[in-house]
Amino acid sequence: MDRNTFTESLTKDGFPDAVVVTREANAAMDIHSHSFEAKALILEGELQIRIGDEERTYRVGDVFHLPPDKAHSERYGPNGVTYLVGRK
């Protein structure tokens, strides 16, 4: 998905202004959750999200969606990751 289409979908789905997040190469976040819903578009690099026993890799153009309070862990690729995220 391209950035403009993604931004339009965020607006349609009631997300406020999106922000760009960058994470460093080969870093990780242990299991955690957020009180908000998150929908993000990968702009650069890659990100692995693990929920329970399932891990999925997201690359440039991919969109990930996490409901509020969903426990997950994150790992960032060898070049880190930059994504555009809406939160509500």
Rank of each mutant, 00 (worst) to 15 (best):
D2I: 15
D2L: 11
D2V: 13
D2P: 09
R3M: 10
N4R: 14
N4F: 05
N4W: 05
T7R: 15
E8F: 07
E8T: 08
S9K: 12
S9W: 05
S9Y: 06
S9A: 14
L10V: 09
L10N: 12
K12V: 07
K12R: 15
K12N: 13
D13S: 14
D13V: 09
D13M: 09
G14Y: 02
G14F: 02
F15Q: 10
F15W: 13
P16D: 14
P16W: 09
P16H: 14
V19W: 10
V19I: 14
V20L: 13
R23T: 04
R23W: 05
R23P: 04
E24W: 02
A25D: 06
N26R: 03
A27V: 03
A27L: 11
A28D: 04
A28F: 07
A28I: 02
M29I: 13
D30L: 08
D30F: 04
D30W: 03
S33V: 07
S33R: 15
S33P: 08
H34N: 08
H34E: 14
S35P: 15
F36E: 03
F36H: 07
E37H: 14
E37R: 15
E37T: 15
K39M: 11
K39D: 02
A40G: 15
A40T: 12
I42A: 00
I42L: 02
L43I: 12
E44H: 08
E44I: 04
G45V: 05
E46Q: 11
E46M: 07
Q48T: 04
I49R: 00
I49Q: 00
I49Y: 00
I49V: 15
R50T: 14
I51Q: 00
I51N: 01
I51S: 00
G52A: 06
G52D: 09
G52C: 08
D53G: 11
D53F: 09
D53W: 05
E55K: 12
T57K: 05
T57M: 11
Y58T: 02
Y58D: 01
Y58C: 03
Y58L: 05
R59M: 06
R59I: 09
V60C: 07
D62E: 10
D62F: 04
V63W: 01
V63R: 01
V63F: 01
F64D: 02
F64M: 05
F64L: 09
H65F: 15
L66N: 04
L66D: 01
P67D: 13
P68F: 09
D69I: 08
K70L: 15
K70S: 10
K70A: 11
A71S: 12
A71V: 07
H72C: 02
H72R: 03
S73M: 04
S73Y: 02
S73V: 03
S73T: 04
S73E: 06
E74A: 14
E74G: 07
R75W: 02
Y76P: 00
Y76E: 01
G77L: 01
G77R: 01
P78M: 05
P78Y: 03
P78W: 03
P78R: 06
N79F: 05
N79P: 04
N79T: 12
N79G: 06
G80A: 02
G80Y: 00
G80C: 03
Y83C: 06
Y83D: 02
R87P: 02
K88L: 10
K88S: 09
K88P: 05
